[in-house]
Computed example of a mutant assay.
Amino acid sequence: MMAIQNPYNQYKQNDVMTASPENLTLLLYNGALKFAHQGKIYIEQKNISKAHEAITRVQDIIQELNVSLDMQYDISQNLRALYVYILESLLDANIKKDTAVLDEVIGMVTELRDTWKEAMKIVKTKK
């Protein structure tokens, strides 16, 4: 017997599978922000295991962004340093269950995401 798949999950899976590399990066930034906000909420609720899961998901996303950098570009060196800093901060936030550190991470990732969106717009207008 075949299980019925949740239509929303199917849509999201199709969205990821058909996304351009630029849109995948945007999806990753948005996912990192979603899980960072969840982690903050779980810390405030004293739900340590859920906070750990959420922060670990952010770490996984940032690690994926880090390893996917094309190091032939100068900007990649700067992004790598920033991603490493974010990863270290997430580790600290997870160990200490510190919402202030998560706020800093959320600010940095939001800025990266917004810059990425702006770059996508500029490239789109030049085509």
Score class of each variant (00 low, 15 high):
residue 112 L to Y: 06
residue 117 K to N: 12
residue 114 D to L: 09
residue 84 V to D: 14
residue 48 I to M: 07
residue 55 I to Q: 04
residue 36 A to C: 10
residue 9 N to E: 14
residue 51 A to L: 00
residue 40 K to M: 05
residue 109 V to M: 08
residue 18 T to W: 02
residue 107 G to N: 13
residue 33 L to R: 09
residue 112 L to A: 07
residue 80 R to G: 01
residue 51 A to Q: 01
residue 105 V to K: 03
residue 65 L to Y: 00
residue 5 Q to C: 13
residue 44 E to R: 14
residue 15 D to V: 05
residue 14 N to L: 15
residue 39 G to Q: 10
residue 4 I to C: 11
residue 87 L to A: 09
residue 46 K to S: 09
residue 124 K to Q: 15
residue 58 V to N: 02
residue 110 T to C: 06
residue 17 M to S: 14
residue 94 N to Q: 12
residue 42 Y to V: 00
residue 42 Y to R: 11
residue 113 R to C: 10
residue 93 A to T: 01
residue 38 Q to R: 10
residue 31 G to W: 03
residue 121 K to F: 02
residue 53 E to P: 01
residue 14 N to K: 12
residue 93 A to D: 02
residue 23 N to E: 15
residue 17 M to A: 14
residue 94 N to Y: 00
residue 32 A to C: 11
residue 19 A to H: 03
residue 59 Q to T: 10
residue 22 E to G: 09
residue 85 Y to L: 14
residue 106 I to R: 06
residue 4 I to Y: 13
residue 73 Y to W: 13
residue 41 I to Q: 10
residue 26 L to E: 13
residue 54 A to Q: 01
residue 65 L to M: 13
residue 29 Y to W: 12
residue 94 N to S: 07
residue 45 Q to S: 08
residue 101 V to S: 00
residue 68 S to F: 04
residue 103 D to E: 12
residue 75 I to Q: 12
residue 105 V to W: 11
residue 104 E to I: 13
residue 58 V to R: 01
residue 34 K to C: 07
residue 10 Q to H: 12
residue 59 Q to F: 07
residue 46 K to A: 07
residue 78 N to F: 06
residue 42 Y to S: 11
residue 10 Q to T: 15
residue 12 K to N: 13
residue 106 I to Y: 05
residue 41 I to W: 05
residue 40 K to C: 01
residue 61 I to K: 07
residue 9 N to S: 15
residue 109 V to S: 01
residue 15 D to M: 11
residue 116 W to D: 07
residue 14 N to C: 03
residue 101 V to R: 10
residue 52 H to Q: 09
residue 68 S to K: 05
residue 100 A to P: 00
residue 13 Q to V: 11
residue 34 K to N: 11
residue 29 Y to T: 08
residue 7 P to Q: 11
residue 54 A to E: 00
residue 1 M to S: 15
residue 76 S to Q: 02
residue 72 Q to C: 03
residue 55 I to K: 06
residue 101 V to I: 15
residue 117 K to G: 06
residue 41 I to N: 03
residue 92 D to K: 15
residue 5 Q to P: 04
residue 124 K to V: 06
residue 115 T to C: 07
residue 29 Y to L: 08
residue 61 I to H: 03
residue 50 K to C: 03
residue 66 N to C: 05
residue 57 R to T: 04
residue 127 K to H: 14
residue 120 M to G: 02
residue 45 Q to V: 04
residue 43 I to E: 04
residue 106 I to F: 04
residue 5 Q to V: 14
residue 1 M to K: 14
residue 30 N to S: 10
residue 29 Y to E: 05
residue 26 L to S: 12
residue 41 I to H: 08
residue 23 N to H: 12
residue 36 A to F: 02
residue 123 V to Q: 12
residue 106 I to H: 00
residue 84 V to R: 08
residue 121 K to E: 15
residue 57 R to N: 09
residue 32 A to K: 05
residue 121 K to V: 06
residue 33 L to D: 08
residue 43 I to M: 08
residue 53 E to C: 01
residue 28 L to V: 08
residue 67 V to R: 08
residue 88 E to H: 09
residue 53 E to V: 03
residue 101 V to G: 05
residue 19 A to I: 05
residue 83 Y to R: 03
residue 85 Y to I: 01
residue 16 V to I: 15
residue 29 Y to M: 06
residue 43 I to G: 09
residue 110 T to V: 04
residue 25 T to Q: 11
residue 89 S to C: 06
residue 73 Y to K: 06
residue 110 T to S: 14
